[in-house]
Amino acid sequence: MADAFTLQRRRRAIHGWLLLAPSLVMLTAFAFYPSAATLWASLFSRGTRRRPAEFIGLENYGRLFDDPTFWLVATNNLLYAGVTIPLSIALALVMALWADARIPARSFVRTAYFTPTVLPMIAAANLWLFFYTPGFGVLDRIGGLFGAASVNWLGQPETALWAVSAVTVWKEAGFFMIFYLAALQTIPPDLREAAAIEGAGRWTYTRRVVLPLLMPTTLFILVNAMINSVKLIDHLFILTRGGPSDASKLILYYVWENAFAFFDRPAAAAMTVLVLAGLGTLAALQFLVIDRRTHYR
């Protein structure tokens, strides 16, 4: 009796592990192992042929904290996130509400909004390079019509970061809009009618019913936007290469530079670990704090 019971349990356990195995293997190979290896590598010195790498503890981190460029890059990234996350989400929401309403050429509007997402980031960056180019770029041409002086958007430290942020917002808003559009379509039209009968106007309905019901989507988008604010650096390679004088350099770009331009792997590893820790903390906070106040159906 007890034997059969144990056997049954063991069989269930084996089943469970078998079902887990594929994702476990993939995640281990492509996420867990690289993270652990990076953490491990960040604790060793930079090895050369003469002097092999040796364990130096947290020295790499100390070196990083003494590097003013690291702090500049971190500040840049915070500003970049602080601008692109709220702007792209707000823009996505407005576009979704607009594209969900009964307007003429609705599918054209939706497609138009979604187009930037389909474009590869490199192509988008080339497009914007043409917008930003001083002298004959679109922005300068338009500015010229109104008598404004030529501005080198990407070439001066004051504007470079914002010019790069604008491309990201433009690129991401359409993608996020799709999520909002999908969520809006799951809201039953009855609710609007019930609210209308209760005397709620369009704005009240949006604020009291639509926005709360979109909260799960907003949370999802927020996490994505946050990750993208660290991850999305392709356009830097085309637009500014982090310049001028590091004004538009972001953390991941700096990691790449350290690893593949300066060949300082341990510094890159240390920075990666810091980024991972920061992102992990933020994601945990989001899911624990906001999740609790979010309604899930």
Partner: peptide
């Protein structure tokens, strides 16, 4: 007038009390 819908059209994110009082709050 008030209306009772076939689907009830209750606001899923609001509690029973908030649902009932929705119109009065508006």
């Amino acid at each position: 007038l008030s209306m009772v819908f076939q689907s009830y059209a209750l606001f899923p994110h609001l509690s029973v009390a908030e649902n009932i009082l929705f119109g009065m709050r508006v």
